[in-house]
Design a protein around this nucleic acid. Structure first.
Length: 545
RNA sequence: GGCCAGUUGGUGAAGUGGCUUAACACACUGCCCUUUCACGGCAGCAUUCACGGAUUCGAAUUCCGUACUGGUCACCA
C-alpha cells in the first residue's frame, strides 16, 4: 500500500490542498505591513492578558498599514462557554480593538471560526499522510497515561516519542485493519526532529532563544475530528497569510513543534513575538507571579468597568507597559493620543509586566485631567446609572452645578489630578451635595484637628461677601486673619510661630474644613461660590456645635 | 524532574563592553512657587545592577557555576 492509497483510505472525501492554496491568495500589501490576529477561545470573558495581546496586535497592524483580524479558536468543545464568542467581540470592541476582518464581519480568508474549517484541516492532514509525515494512533488515554507514569518513575523525558510512540511503527496495513475493525483513532504528526540538536530562534520580543528540535509526535487531529491548537495554528496562519504571530509567552515552549509543523507542511513560518505575562505580587507569598483567572479579580476586564476606570485610561496604561519609552513620550506630547506613538517589539518587556493598580490609578488621573468637565460629567453619569442610582439622580438634578464644580481648575494647561475613576467623583465631591452632606449624622466626625472656631463665626457674620471677586475675597481674609492673630504669610509665621495662632493658610484650612469636611478640595473660592452663603450658614451652624 | 526564560533603589523600569559618579516615571521626604487646596519647579532616595568565579586596560552589559522566581511539559488553548 502506498502513502497515497493510505491517505485516500483515511480521508476519502477531502479536497486537494492545491484548492485552498489557490483560493486564499497572497495579500497585496507592502513588505513592512504586519498582518496579525487575535485568536481567542470562547472559554470565558476577555481578560487583561488577551486585551494586552490585542492592544499590541492592533497597534502593530495599524502603525504598519497592515491587517488585524479576529479568529475564533473553538476547537475545544468541552470547555466552551455559552455566548462566549459574543462576549469576546463585545469586550474587544469596548476597549477599542476593532478588526479589519474576521469572525462576524467577513473577509476573504474565512471562515474565521475553526469549527467551520474542519474540511480544510483534514485536507492538510491528508497531505501530511501522503508525504509520510502523519499517521493514525490507536493508543487509549489510559495507555498514554501508563507510559507517562513509567517515564516519570524512570526519570525519562515525558511524551510520545522514540520508542514510546508505539503506533508510529504500525504498518499501513495494520492501521487499516484496526480502523476497519472499528478502533477509534487520532492523527499524529510524524516528527523528523532530533531532540539533541539545538537551534537558535530569534523572537521579536525575547531575542535569541535556544531550543531543541521537536521529536514529539504531537496529536494534530483529535478523536472528534477537530485539530489541536498546534495544527490549526499552522494551517490557519499560513492560509490567512499572517506575517506576525503575537501571543503570550506560555507558547514559547511550543515553538519547536510549530516550527516543525510549518516545515513538514512546506509553509513559510510567520515571525513570532512572545509577550511577557502580566504579573502581580502575590499577597501571601510575596512572590511575583502571573495573574491568575481564579485568584485575581483584576484580571477580568469587567473589574475595571465596575471600578469605574475608563477604557481610555486602561489603554493608556497598557501603552505604558507595552513600551517603556511610551510614558516619557506621552509626557512630552500631551496633545497626542497613544495611537500616535510608534511601538516597537524590541522595547517590549521580556520578563514580566507587573500589573500595578497604583500605577494604573496615576495613569488614570492623567487621563481624567485631560477631559472636559462635560465629558467627566457625562461619563460619570453613565457609570452612576449602572452602579449607583441614587448618585445618578443627584447628578441629573444638579447637572449645571456639577459641571461647574468639575470645571474648577480643569480645561487649563495644568489641570488638577484628583479623579482616577468615576467612583472618585462621588468620593471626592460628595460634600457638595446637601442630600449627601446632611445625610450623615455628623459630617464632621472624621475631622481630627480642632480649630479656633470663634473666629470663623465672626468672619462669616461680618466679612464674607459672596459677591466679592476672588482677589477681594482673599484680601479680606488676609485682613481679617491678621486682625485675629494670624500671620499674613508663611515666612512671617515661620520666623516667630509663637506670636501667631497660625498663618493665613491655617485660617483657610478651617474654612475649607467647615465647608467640605476635608483639608483638600478644589480651589476654596470656587467652592464657596458654588455653595452660596445660605448653604454655608447651615454648615457653619452644624460645624460650630 | 526535563527544557526554556528572567533576576537593576520602596515600586515599575531604561540600559545590548567605555558617553552611566545607572535615565525616566510612580511613591515617599524636604525645599521653593503660590492668596488656600491643587498644579508646577528643584533636591534627596541603588557608590551599585541576585550571589560566586572567569574574560577584558575596562562589565549592569560577555562566559561559567550557584540560588531564587516564572513559563512549559494534554485528544486545553
Amino acid at each position: 500500500m502506498t502513502d497515497k492509497e493510505f491517505a485516500d483510505f483515511l480521508f476519502p472525501d477531502v479536497k486537494e490542498i492545491a484548492y485552498y492554496e489557490e483560493k486564499y491568495v497572497r495579500r497585496n500589501l507592502p513588505d513592512e505591513a504586519v498582518v496579525t490576529r487575535c485568536a481567542p477561545s470562547p472559554t470565558g470573558f476577555v481578560h487583561m492578558g488577551s486585551l494586552y495581546q490585542g492592544f499590541i496586535a492592533k497597534q502593530m497592524a495599524r502603525q504598519s498599514g497592515g491587517v488585524l483580524f479576529l479568529r475564533i479558536e473553538d476547537t475545544d468543545q468541552k470547555r466552551e462557554v455559552e455566548n462566549g464568542v459574543e462576549g469576546i467581540v463585545k469586550d474587544f470592541k469596548e476597549y477599542g480593538i476593532t478588526f479589519d476582518e474576521g469572525y462576524g464581519m467577513g473577509g476573504a480568508y474565512g471562515p474565521y471560526i475553526q469549527s467551520e474549517r474542519g474540511e480544510i484541516y483534514k485536507a492538510y492532514v491528508k497531505y501530511l499522510v501522503e508525504k509520510g509525515y502523519a499517521y493514525p494512533c490507536f493508543c487509549t488515554p489510559e495507555e498514554i497515561d501508563e507510559n507517562r507514569k513509567i517515564q516519570e518513575a524512570t526519570k525519562e523525558r515525558i511524551g510520545y516519542y522514540g520508542r514510546w510512540s508505539t503506533c508510529r511503527g504500525l504498518t499501513k496495513e495494520e492501521a487499516v485493519e484496526k480502523i476497519k475493525s472499528g478502533k477509534p483513532f487520532i492523527m499524529r504528526m510524524k516528527s523528523q526532529g532530533d531532540f539533541r540538536v539545538k537551534h537558535i530562534y530569534h523572537d521579536l520580543i525575547k531575542g535569541d532563544l535556544e531550543y531543541p528540535e521537536n521529536d514529539l509526535d504531537h496529536v494534530i487531529l483529535k478523536s472528534d475530528g477537530l485539530p489541536t491548537y498546534h495544527f490549526a495554528h499552522a494551517v490557519d496562519d499560513h492560509l490567512m497569510h499572517t506575517t506576525h504571530v503575537i501571543r503570550g509567552d506560555e507558547w514559547v515552549s511550543s515553538l519547536p513543534v510549530h516550527l516543525e509543523l510549518f516545515h513538514l507542511l512546506g509553509f513559510e513560518p510567520p515571525k513570532y513575538a512572545h509577550i511577557a505575562p502580566l504579573t502581580k505580587k502575590d499577597e501571601e507569598t510575596g512572590n511575583i507571579r502571573k495573574l491568575s483567572k481564579r485568584k485575581d479579580p483584576e484580571l477580568a476586564v469587567s473589574y475595571y468597568h465596575e471600578a469605574g476606570i475608563p477604557v481610555g485610561a486602561v489603554n493608556l496604561f497598557l501603552a505604558t507597559i507595552a513600551n517603556s519609552s511610551f510614558e516619557e513620550w506621552y509626557l512630552q506630547n500631551q496633545d497626542k493620543s497613544y495611537t500616535d506613538f510608534t511601538f516597537t517589539f524590541d522595547k517590549m518587556p521580556i520578563g514580566g509586566s507587573l500589573f500595578d493598580l497604583e500605577k494604573l490609578e496615576s495613569v488614570s488621573k492623567i487621563y481624567f485631567s485631560k477631559l472636559s468637565a462635560k465629558q467627566v460629567y457625562d461619563e460619570t453619569l453613565n457609570y452612576a446609572r449602572e452602579y449607583d442610582s441614587t448618585f445618578a439622580e443627584i447628578l441629573e438634578k444638579y447637572k449645571d452645578y456639577t459641571i461647574s464644580l468639575l470645571n474648577i481648575e480643569r480645561e487649563i494647561e495644568r489641570p488638577r489630578k484628583d479623579i482616577g475613576s468615576y467612583k472618585d467623583v462621588k468620593k471626592e465631591f460628595w460634600y457638595m451635595y446637601d442630600e449627601l452632606f446632611f445625610a450623615k449624622e455628623n459630617p464632621y466626625s472624621e475631622v481630627e484637628k480642632t480649630y479656633p472656631k470663634e473666629d470663623l463665626q465672626a468672619y462669616f457674620d461680618e466679612v464674607y461677601d459672596a459677591s466679592d471677586s476672588e482677589e477681594e475675597w482673599f484680601s479680606k481674609i488676609k485682613t481679617f486673619a491678621e486682625a485675629h492673630g494670624y500671620a499674613i504669610n508663611r515666612k512671617l509665621y515661620k520666623e516667630n510661630p509663637e506670636n501667631f495662632k497660625g498663618q493665613v493658610g491655617d485660617f483657610c484650612e478651617m474654612i475649607r474644613v467647615m465647608a467640605t469636611t476635608k483639608t483638600i478640595s478644589p480651589n476654596l473660592y470656587d467652592i464657596l461660590q458654588l455653595l452660596g452663603k445660605e448653604r454655608l450658614q447651615k454648615r457653619l451652624a452644624l460645624f460650630m456645635k
